[in-house]
Design a protein around this nucleic acid. Structure first.
Lengths: 353, 353
DNA sequence: ATGAAAGCGCTAACAC
DNA sequence: GTGTTAGCGCTTTCAT
């Protein structure tokens, strides 16, 4: 039993052909007589050889066929957001049929990140994908760039090698805000994603906002101002999760001078705001309008349908997958920008009064 | 710039040492003078050598350091379930620090599965993990077993090479059912996970139940009978999703002879049932009791807290990760069985009338 | 403590 | 159409 696994050389020997011929029999590339091919396959079966060892193939070809996806340290948090999940679904289903695998890389974020992450440092990968809003100076990104791994960056700064994929969320957000203004709303509050890596929860003052580094947060906030709106309040959520939206909703709405519209920078945050409004006995949209962005499916909000700026999440995954595949083929793909659309929903309406 | 990347040999040459010495400088294994080591490191820096190529290392060591996780074709569906996500979080965070990566493998399930899945067929991996309820005859599993990849199987049949990790869900479910009986319930309905690969939605008759192959579904159903309960109705959901639970809830509860308790085989299904009950104007638990299993956090059900059989999901991920790591070390780990606990919640109470 | 040499398993020129 | 040969980049005995 302790016999080592058969190699292509063993098969070739048993079939009475050379290794290269045996290789051709498996790869299908190159000329080979059906008869010879069959002879090799039979020998393989006899030896219970299960096909070329991927490790040998990889070394030889210089490619691992692996696309690394850097997810934050809290994978559970990332994946509780349908946004990441739908994106990943698009990515995996584009890459899979191409024979390319997705490797999950949990990179420790935050200030007190440990020195070296072995996976980031030395896992084999041909391309890496950085999820929303990656900055040049982030440690994981620096590690990868130093290694010379080409990057596909979502919604962030363009990499030295690789490309970026983004959506027109600023414009979409501006459009949505303009619609809300047209409905008569003047007191508009905004619930944002984190301003930067330190992920605070609470009201945002000018100083805090000026210190913002996360591109997505900044862009969507800019979208609000593009529509000529200066928010009466800006609240920072530490993550895109329903409970943080709920906290924000209570803070913003449980007061006499409450805003008539709350715009959240994600659908999960908006859902939390909506729940808070319900809990406070406010009618939506009669007493307060609520809107989000992402366009995820939220059946449990029924009968409400959240107003949202819809981004094509699965397409984004596909676009990233295609970009990664092209980089693997030695190409240098152009940046991709995907459009957003508006979902009107039922949660915005005329301003009260 | 078309110069190829430097190799360890280049670095050794520049440092004036042999390749093997250079190798030691990086691996740290083996005796080497600090001075020599530094010389090598300096040479590496000068050449902007970023460390040993993982592909070479992998071929040499015969290990890829990759743990494949086979997720169904619909990754989005799998990951919409917090159960998978929490599990994966536990897995990734156990494996990551060990330098082991998790490769997502989307295996086409269903009857009309395509001939060959390139990833399953030939991706490099040292161990594969099969999510809940894997059966020997499933094509992805057969492919992996044929390749000789050791398996860590969750809640399924033990593999030829590898081990299994499971929870005491049958016992937990039986306990929960017994509690419900003790509360006076006699008309108990069950909402199940899929009976088998064809994933039907609707009432389950004896024939359908007899044809069930999915271990998890069978075990939890057995748990109900262990408590001496013969369900007045069994409804099959095609996936563990809130909307399917809702459908089930409406079908089971919108009738005069409705059950007084509905036991679902997942928390997501139970949540759907709860929503349906609310929509039908039924009070929970005064008019109907609802319970699930998994123990996931469901803040949006507030103020209700779902009664549930809690399984230690992150522990499960960790246990699988540890098993995988041990298999990689050439060990042959024993099966692991993890305990369940009861979350009483607020959704079960005395039977009405 | 360092070096020489072998070889992990495979593919792709190139020659026949 | 098939065989020969030369590595891909690394680690690891085994000498020295």
């Amino acid at each position: 039993m302790g016999t080592r696994r058969p190699t292509l050389a063993d098969v070739a020997g048993a079939a009475g052909v050379s290794v290269s011929t045996a290789s051709l029999a498996f790869s299908g590339a190159g000329p080979i007589t059906p008869a010879t091919r069959q002879k090799v396959l039979d020998a393989a079966a006899a030896l219970s050889y299960v096909g070329p060892n991927p490790l040998g193939r990889q070394l030889r070809s210089g490619r691992s066929g692996i696309v690394g996806v850097v997810v934050g340290d809290a994978l559970a948090r990332a994946f509780r957001d349908p946004v990441s999940v739908q994106f990943l679904d698009g990515l995996v289903s584009t890459l899979g049929p191409l024979g390319l695998g997705v490797l999950l890389i949990p990179a420790s974020e935050g200030e007190g990140a440990p020195a070296v992450d072995p996976l980031l440092e030395s896992a084999a990968m041909d391309v890496a994908v950085l999820l929303s809003g990656s900055l040049l100076e982030e440690p994981p990104r620096r590690t990868l760039e130093r290694r010379g791994v080409p990057l596909v960056v979502l919604e962030g700064e363009p990499p030295a090698r690789g490309t970026i994929v983004s959506v027109t969320d600023r414009q979409g957000y501006a459009e949505m805000t303009a619609d809300v203004v047209a409905l008569g709303h003047r007191r508009v509050a905004v619930v944002t994603l984190p301003m930067r890596g330190d992920r605070r929860e609470g009201p945002v003052d000018a100083e805090r906002e000026a210190s913002a580094t996360w591109p997505v947060t900044r862009r969507r906030l800019a979208g609000v101002r593009d529509a000529g709106v200066e928010p009466v309040a800006v609240w920072e959520a530490p993550a895109s999760l329903v409970e943080h939206g709920r906290t924000a909703g209570h803070a913003l709405l449980d007061r006499p001078d409450r805003p008539t519209a709350v715009l959240a920078q994600s659908d999960l945050l908006a859902s939390g705001v909506l729940l808070a409004a319900r809990e406070l006995g406010l009618r939506v949209p009669e007493d307060v309008s609520v809107a989000g962005i992402d366009g995820i499916d939220l059946p449990w909000l029924a009968p409400d349908v959240l107003r949202s700026v819809v981004q094509p999440l699965a397409d984004k995954g596909r676009a990233v997958g295609e970009a990664a595949a092209r980089i693997l083929d030695g190409e240098d793909p152009e940046p991709v920008v995907l459009p957003t659309t508006q979902r009107l929903g039922t949660t915005t309406g005329r301003a009260p009064g």
